[in-house]
């Protein structure tokens, strides 16, 4: 091989290796067909463009211009009657045939639907996913939940789940005092638990203060008198009476499912609904992860 071509290919090679290194650092799976085809495409571009250009530049070094000149000249510019370069001409013919074949037979006009392909892919994937992870261990769920959380929830709740200075619920803690007070004042009708909405005004003044303090502290110590009202629905221990009302003591899977389905409007602001965005396993995973964020335990 001659010098120019080698230099061209070295340039192409360096570029490709650089991409490979960076992509590998991001843990990209190159055996995935789309990734692989893309990568091969990048190689083809770099190698062919620099290689072929270098080949012709090499000809500048070694060949001489020959051929029969046409009669015309324009402002002193002449023109040879040289034939087409054979490689170019045959490639043109070949590619045109390929195009006709591809369009008419290879991928016939109406035989392909991108949405159809998508639907099949997702269906197959989901079935496999649910089957595989139906009985996933809490550790697996937690890991899975973390990655979903970082993609979908972190923009509001922050990467650590701390709610970013009160922009969303601080998930390192089940519930804050002002949130409880707000619910006592305004009632709550976000989640559609079996018991329905919670009416406003169940505790007022000092009672409200006391009960809010108690709930916000994780229901530790002695319950204030007014707690009795609450216990009717939320259970004596505040864990929600087996799913009749929200668990006030700690995050649980029911609460996460309800909030993801219905969203929430509260004193902090609004949480959008994520209905139909996650599979049951993914919701369980999120719950498992959120439980580990908070120090409040059942």
């Amino acid at each position: 091989m001659n010098g120019m071509v080698v230099k061209g290919l070295v340039l192409a090679g360096v570029l490709i290796v650089a991409i490979l290194v960076v992509v590998k650092q991001m843990h990209i799976d190159l055996s995935d067909p789309v990734n692989m085809i893309t990568f091969l495409g990048a190689i083809a571009i770099a190698v062919l463009a620099f290689g072929v250009a270098a080949k012709y530049m090499q000809q500048m070094k070694t060949d001489t211009a020959t051929g029969e000149l046409a009669e015309d000249t324009w402002d002193g510019i002449g023109e040879y009657k040289n034939d087409l370069p054979a490689g170019w001409a045959w490639s043109f013919v070949g590619v045109s045939i390929w195009a006709g074949w591809y369009f008419l037979f290879g991928y016939p006009l109406n035989a392909y639907s991108q949405i159809g392909e998508y639907n099949e892919e997702v269906k197959a994937y989901n079935a496999k996913f649910e089957a595989k992870h139906k009985n996933a261990s809490p550790e697996v769920l937690k890991e899975m939940g973390e990655s979903i959380f970082l993609v979908q929830c972190a923009p509001c709740h922050g990467e650590t789940g701390d709610g970013m200075d009160g922009k969303a619920h601080d998930l390192t803690h089940r519930i804050a005092k002002e949130q409880v007070l707000y619910v006592l004042k305004n009632g709550s009708h976000n989640f559609k638990y079996p018991l329905g909405a919670m009416p406003a005004g169940l505790a007022q003044g000092k009672d409200a203060e006391a009960v809010a303090e108690y709930v916000a502290n994780g229901l530790k110590g002695k319950a204030p008198a007014a707690w009795a009202t609450c216990a009717g629905c939320h259970g004596q221990d505040g864990t929600g009476n087996g799913g009749q009302a929200p668990n006030l003591k700690a995050f649980d899977a029911t609460l996460i499912h309800q909030v993801l389905t219905h969203g929430k409007k509260g004193v902090i602001g609004q949480m959008p609904s994520f209905v139909n965005r996650f599979t049951p396993v993914q919701e369980k995973a999120l719950a498992e992860y959120i439980k580990t964020l908070s120090s409040d335990k059942e």
Binding site: P155, C156, Q270, P272, S273, R277
Partner: peptide, 8 residues
């Protein structure tokens, strides 16, 4: 509009 809110 489905997953962000006005206050956000």
């Amino acid at each position: 509009g489905r997953y962000r809110t006005p206050d956000w």
